[in-house]
Design a protein around this nucleic acid. Sequence first.
DNA 1: AAGTACTCCAACCGCGACGGA
DNA 2: TTCCGTCGCGGTTGGAGTACT
Length: 258
Amino acid sequence: MVRAPCFDKNGIKRGAWSKEEDNKLRAYIQIYGHSNWRELPKLAGLSRCGKSCRLRWMNYLRPNMKRGNFTKEEEDVIVGLHEKLGNKWSTMATQLPGRSDNEIKNHWHTHLKNQVRKDQTVLKIEQFETLEPFKATPRGCQQVKKPNLKTPQEVEILLAVLTSESPSSSSTSESSQCSLSVSDYEVPCDDATPQFSEPAGNLWFDQLFLPDNNGVVLSSETMFSPFGLTDDNLISKTSFPDHIMDDVHLWSTIDLYL
DNA sequence: AAGTACTCCAACCGCGACGGA
DNA sequence: TTCCGTCGCGGTTGGAGTACT
């Protein structure tokens, strides 16, 4: 899982390090230190650039470097630090003895990033499901609490929020397919519980499927049903509370990675 | 068994910061 | 003050190993 060794036009070796090279580098640094990385490879008898030597030492050959899997404790530290610091890998490495910044960065990208995002989404779904008077329901459950939207203009705002921040908004081919408008829906006059069915048209959120913490798939149906956006009915009488609009924003910006 | 797709991580690259002349 | 060399950081890539078809 390493680059094949090769030489560039200056005779500098690149690619994977051999055991012999490792030994030369380790032995030199243990005796003379590494005050000048540029000169080091010449003095150590290595056909490598200083940068490559430094990287090899920092990421692999330093004393007390840990090899192997990260522990749960280490992962927790990384997640916590990333929350605070962002992509400051070298700073994180100072908090994790025996781990290099490169190692932490790789582990984040291959294991932790998606895990954290998934956890956050589950949390948001849980928060969303506790909202009143709206109640999210699993796919297939058509009984939803009727929403209270006052005017078609309010619905227009909702739709604008949903469509303007869609994940595919930068993709002209997909964003141009957002064809939902208020006129697609009728204003209900009675209190009948709405029955949901997929709206006509090609909405970006048609493709949005979000697993909840019970493994239930939440789809565009679920996203819409709390707001009563159905083929048959949509609008009622009171205004859209700010906290609901906040959550509409939140939902509209959830990525499609799941 | 063979071909293809995906994962993972060591190594590379480019750039900004810093210090010395 | 400017220039130059070096270092260190974060993003990206290459490709071996593994899983899947």
